[in-house]
Simulated assay, not measured.
Amino acid sequence: MSLMLKEICEQPVALEQTIQAEQEKVKKLGEFLKTKDIDLIVIVARGSSDNAALFGRYLFEITTGTPVSLCAPSVFTLYNAKLKLKRALVIGVSQSGEGVDINKVLESAKNSGAFTIGITNQAKSSMAKIADETLLTHAGPERSVAATKTYTGQMLHFYMLASALSGIKLGYKKIPHFCDAALKLETEIEELVQRYVFMENCVVVGRGLNYGNSYELALKLMETCYVVAERFSSADFFHGPLAIVERRFPVILFAPSGVTKTSNIDLLKRLKELHADSFSIT
């Protein structure tokens, strides 16, 4: 078993540990933030953490009604801009908590009057020292270069924080169970992916709450399988990018039930007409 697969299999336990250790803290944090005059949420991250942040953006806007911006760290680190964030909640996300540009944004936001939160896997990290409040992903050491259990841990924290801020019960306590059930599909997945062993290019499509996951899967394909993987929203894919699809071109689609189902089915029908090789995750 590879180190990456081993850490993937550790996700149900890591997620459950995070819920048990952090849910009361998140609940109290939510109650405190409701007393502040916050009209903007800013999330700053890089890499896989940035893909988790993209999920967080959709979730916060849907549940709280508060506009969310994904921060461009270079605005702070290269252009030395001073943003007006006095009424903002700024959330930094980093597995190690040592991303220099992420931490610089947190410091600048804090100096401008924003309330800052750090989501990290390292309790003694620089991020934990800078942020007003730290939320930990209790994933244990992540030795694989490709992030897995910390990525899902970060998304879990967005669920818990969104629930605390909105008062909506999001059912996040079921997530470790769902993760465990997904891992039981390993043998089936191994058989399905044999057809893609020689894949060199593909497109990964997702929409809404799965848009960030499309970015993350594409990143994983690039960094672990050396596949050139483009990623799109299913809504955007119809406008221009669909032209790259030819016979047997691989398209991986996040296609859950729910509000995106209709547009996903429309896309699958069009891909069938083009004789693409469609693989749906549902």
Score class of each variant (00 low, 15 high):
2 S>F: 09
4 M>F: 13
5 L>N: 08
8 I>Y: 11
24 E>W: 08
24 E>F: 12
27 K>T: 11
28 K>I: 11
33 L>A: 03
34 K>Q: 14
35 T>W: 06
38 I>S: 06
38 I>D: 00
40 L>E: 09
40 L>R: 12
42 V>G: 13
48 S>E: 01
48 S>I: 00
50 D>K: 14
51 N>P: 10
53 A>Y: 08
54 L>F: 10
55 F>T: 11
57 R>V: 03
58 Y>A: 09
58 Y>R: 11
59 L>G: 03
63 T>H: 13
66 T>M: 14
67 P>M: 07
69 S>H: 14
70 L>Y: 13
70 L>F: 14
73 P>E: 05
74 S>E: 03
76 F>I: 14
78 L>G: 13
78 L>P: 07
78 L>H: 15
79 Y>V: 07
80 N>V: 10
80 N>E: 15
80 N>T: 14
81 A>V: 10
82 K>G: 08
84 K>G: 11
86 K>V: 05
87 R>V: 02
88 A>C: 07
88 A>T: 10
88 A>F: 09
89 L>S: 03
89 L>W: 10
89 L>M: 06
94 S>T: 09
95 Q>Y: 12
96 S>V: 02
96 S>K: 12
97 G>H: 12
98 E>Q: 15
101 D>T: 07
105 V>P: 04
109 A>R: 09
109 A>Q: 07
111 N>Y: 13
115 F>E: 05
118 G>N: 01
119 I>T: 06
119 I>W: 04
120 T>G: 01
120 T>A: 01
127 M>A: 02
128 A>C: 05
129 K>H: 12
135 L>Q: 07
136 L>S: 05
137 T>Y: 12
137 T>H: 02
137 T>S: 08
144 S>M: 01
145 V>H: 10
146 A>K: 05
146 A>Q: 08
152 T>C: 02
156 L>K: 00
156 L>A: 06
158 F>R: 00
158 F>N: 00
159 Y>W: 08
162 A>D: 02
166 S>N: 04
167 G>V: 01
167 G>S: 03
171 G>P: 01
175 I>Q: 03
175 I>R: 02
176 P>I: 03
178 F>V: 11
182 A>N: 04
183 L>M: 06
188 E>V: 07
189 I>V: 15
190 E>H: 15
195 R>L: 07
195 R>P: 06
197 V>D: 11
198 F>P: 04
200 E>A: 03
202 C>T: 06
207 R>C: 05
211 Y>R: 14
214 S>F: 05
217 L>S: 05
219 L>T: 11
221 L>N: 07
227 V>M: 06
228 V>P: 01
230 E>D: 12
230 E>C: 05
232 F>M: 02
232 F>G: 07
234 S>N: 13
238 F>W: 09
238 F>S: 04
241 P>F: 05
241 P>W: 06
242 L>T: 11
243 A>L: 00
243 A>T: 13
244 I>L: 09
244 I>Q: 08
247 R>D: 04
249 F>P: 03
249 F>M: 03
252 I>M: 09
252 I>P: 00
253 L>F: 10
253 L>N: 12
256 P>W: 02
259 V>M: 14
260 T>C: 12
261 K>P: 08
263 S>Y: 15
265 I>D: 15
267 L>M: 04
269 K>Y: 10
272 K>I: 01
274 L>A: 05
276 A>I: 00
281 I>P: 03
281 I>M: 09
282 T>K: 11
